[in-house]
Nucleic acid binder design. Structure first.
Lengths: 214, 214, 214, 214
DNA sequence: GATGAATGAGTTTTCATTCAT
DNA sequence: TATGAATGAAAACTCATTCAT
C-alpha cells in the first residue's frame, strides 16, 4: 500500500472508468435509463475529493459535476458518509489491484525489486494524476485513523499488498518493505527535490537485505 | 518526519501549550483582555481537526470549544484557511522540535538507532494522543499534496528531520531512513496488528546497512 | 422614461401584482406548493428597496416580509444581485408599460401633450406610492451608472419611451421631451414647492416647439 | 442641479481635495497630528460610494482606503449615517459651487446658453470622473426621496441652481431649464448612444423659448 | 483626544436531507 | 423508480459600535 500507486487508480479500466468531461448520456429528456449513474457518482466523488478534499465536497458539487440530479444523490446513497465510504472502498480496491498487477507481472526476484521501484516512482513524479492519487490516499488515512469503518479499508488494502509482496520476498521483510514503499512514495510526493531512481533502488536493496554492508 | 511523532506534539510545553478545559482568564465581564486567546484558538483548532478532521471543523465549533466569542474568530484570523494554515504551521514546528529533541539526546550511533525505533513506536501504539498526531499528519499531507502553501510546511519539516538524522547517519541513507520512519509509523498506526519493537529494530538496522545479509 | 411613472408601477395588474400582507397560500404545513412564490419575492424586494434602499435590503428582511423561508431565497435566486437584477427588470418593464399605456391612449397631438403632463404629475405629487416609484428609479439609475447589466435595463426602457413618444412627436424633439419628462418628474419629486400643472404644460409646449416666443 | 455637474465635484480644490493613493501623512508612529483626517474620510467616503454604492460602503472599507484607524471612524462621526450625511452635504455644496462658477463666468445671454450646454455635456461623456458624479447624484436622489434630512440637501442645491439661472434667464423658465439640464444629463449618462452638442443646444434653445417654431 | 481590541448581531450563502409527485 | 422543489440549520464572514487604555 503506497500513496503513489493510487495515482494510477483511474487507469484501472472497469472499477473507476469514467469520462469527467463527457456529456450526459442522452438528452435531459432521455435521462430515464442511465445505468452507470451510480458508478459515475462514485468516480466523480473521488475526482472532487482529490481536488478539494473531503472538506470541500458536497452533494451539490458532485451532482453538478457528474451531471446528475441533486435528488438522485440521496436516492443512490443514503447519506454523504455512505457515499464517501463506498467511493473510498472503490479507491482502495483499485489501488490494491494496481499493486497486484505490477508485482504479479514480475517473473523473478530481480523483476520484483524493479517493480517495487517502479511503484514508488510511478506517477509520484507529479502531474495531475499523481496529485489525485496522493491526496486521496492521505484523505483516506486521515479518515482511517479516526474511524474504524475506514480503517477496515486500509487494513484490507495493506493485507493485500503484503500478500503480494510475500510472493517475492521473505515474510520477515515484507512489512518493512511495504513501509518503505509507503514512506518513499509519500516523501517523493511532498518533497520539492524528490530522490531519483538510484536512491530508491539502493533503499529497496537495503531493506530487502541486499545492500552493501557499511 | 513521521506521523507518530505528531502524537507527542502536545507534550511540547511552549509551542502548543494549552489547557483545553481551562476556564477563561477572568470573568465573562472582564474578557476584554485575554492575551493568549490567539494561542488558545490555534491549539483548539488542532484538537478539533484531530477529532473531526478538516472537513468537520467550523468557526462555531472551535469558538465554543475555546470559549471565545464567535466574532473573535475572524477578528484574530482573517479566514478559515488562514487559521488552518497557522495551526498546521504550529503543528509542524512542534513535531519537528520533538523529533530533534529525541534524536538530539542520542549520544552515539547506537542511541540514535534506539531513538529512531522509539520515535516510530512512541504513541503510535494507540490511545487518543496517538490518534491526534496521526490524523493531524495525514490531514496536513492531504492539504500539502493539493496546496503549495501547505507543502512549504511539510518541506521545511522534512528538511529539519533529515538534518537531524544526518548528525547520526550517513547522508546517503538519511532519506531512506526518514521514509522508513514515515512508512512504519503510518502502517503501525493503521494496522490492526502492529509490528513489535523487534521487527522495527530489524527494519531500521537493515535500512542503515547493518542488517544480516540474506 | 421618467421617475414619476414608476410610482404607478404597482398598479399594473399582471407584472407586479402581489398582495403584501396576504397570507401564504395554504397552511404552513402545505407550503410545499406555492407557485407564485418567486413573483412574491420579487414584488416584496421592490417594496423593500423602495422603503429602505438597496443598501437596506437583506435576504432576511425580504423573506420575512414575503412570508417565505430564508432558505428559499437563494433557492429561487442564486445571489442577492440576481434577485435585485430580476426585480429591477420587472420594474423597468412595468414602468415602460405604464408609459406606453398612457401615451397609447392619446388620440391626437393635443391628447399626447396632455398625457405627457399627466405622466409628469401623476403621483409625483407625493404619497407613499409616489415615493416608491421615485426611489426605485433613482436606485436603478445609481446601479445603471455603475454596472452595465443594469444599464441594459435603463437603455431598453429609454428606447421604449422614445419609441412611444415618436408616435406623437417629431423624432427630432423626442429626446429633449423625454429628458424634460425625466427632469421635471425628478425635480417635482424632490422639490419642497413643486411646480403646478400650468408650469409643466408651458414647459412641455416650449420643448415641443409650441411655446410663446420671448 | 444636474447629474453631470457632480462629475466635476472633485475638481473643486478645497472642499473635496484629496489624493486617493497618497501615502499616509507621516509614518504610523507620527500619526498623532493628522489635521485633515476628517476631510480625508469624507472624500474617501464619496469615492467609495461612487464605486460600490451606499449599499457597499462600510466603516472598515472607508477606514482602509483613507488609511485611518477603524476606531477613528466613529470617533470623528458618531454614526454611519452622520458620516454619509456630511459627505453628501459636501457633495451637494461642491456641485452647486461648480454650477455657479460655470454660469457666473457667462457675460451675456449667449454665453449663458453655451454654459448650460457645457454643463450638460461636461463629463457626462463617460470616464471614471463622470461615473463618479453620476452615481453620487443618483444615490443622493434615492436618499432624498426617502429621507427629509437628505431632501434638505437637494432642495438647497436646487435653489442655488435656480438662483444662478435666474441671473441669466426669465424666472418663468428657469424651472423648466433646470429640469431639462437634469434630464438631459441623466439620459446622456445612461444612454448607449448619447446625443451630441447640436441636439442639446437645440433643446436648450427650445426650452428658453428661442427654438424654431413648428 | 484617539485607538486597538473586541463582540453580538447580522450578512450572504451553502448544505444535507426530505418529500410530494 | 427517480426527482425537482423546498427548507431548517449551519456555514463563513462582515458589520457598526463599544470601551479600556
Amino acid at each position: 500500500m503506497a500513496a503513489s500507486d493510487v495515482a494510477a487508480a483511474d487507469k484501472v479500466p472497469i472499477d473507476l472508468a469514467h469520462a469527467p468531461g463527457a456529456p450526459a448520456t442522452g438528452t435531459a429528456r432521455t435521462r430515464r435509463t442511465d445505468p452507470d449513474r451510480r458508478e459515475r457518482i462514485l468516480a466523480t466523488t473521488l475526482d472532487l475529493v482529490a481536488e478539494v478534499g473531503v472538506a470541500g465536497v458536497s452533494h451539490r458539487k458532485i451532482a453538478a459535476r457528474a451531471d446528475v440530479p441533486l435528488g438522485s444523490m440521496t436516492y443512490h446513497f443514503a447519506s454523504m458518509d455512505e457515499l464517501l465510504h463506498e467511493a473510498f472502498t472503490r479507491l482502495a480496491d483499485a489501488v490494491a489491484a494496481r499493486f497486484e498487477a505490477r508485482l504479479g507481472a514480475a517473473r523473478d526476484h530481480e523483476e520484483a525489486v524493479e517493480a517495487v521501484v517502479d511503484l514508488i516512482h510511478e506517477l509520484s513524479d507529479g502531474g495531475p494524476t499523481s496529485t489525485r492519487g496522493n491526496v486521496l490516499s492521505y484523505e483516506l488515512y486521515a479518515l482511517a485513523a479516526r474511524d474504524p469503518r475506514y480503517r477496515a479499508l486500509t487494513t484490507a488494502w495493506m493485507a493485500r499488498s503484503r500478500r503480494e509482496l510475500e510472493r517475492h520476498f521473505d515474510p520477515r521483510i515484507t512489512r518493512r518493505l511495504d513501509a518503505l514503499i509507503e514512506g518513499m512514495s509519500l516523501h517523493r510526493a511532498l518533497d520539492e527535490d524528490p530522490v531519483d531512481r538510484t536512491v530508491t533502488l539502493a533503499a529497496v536493496r537495503a531493506v530487502v537485505g541486499e545492500g552493501d554492508q557499511r
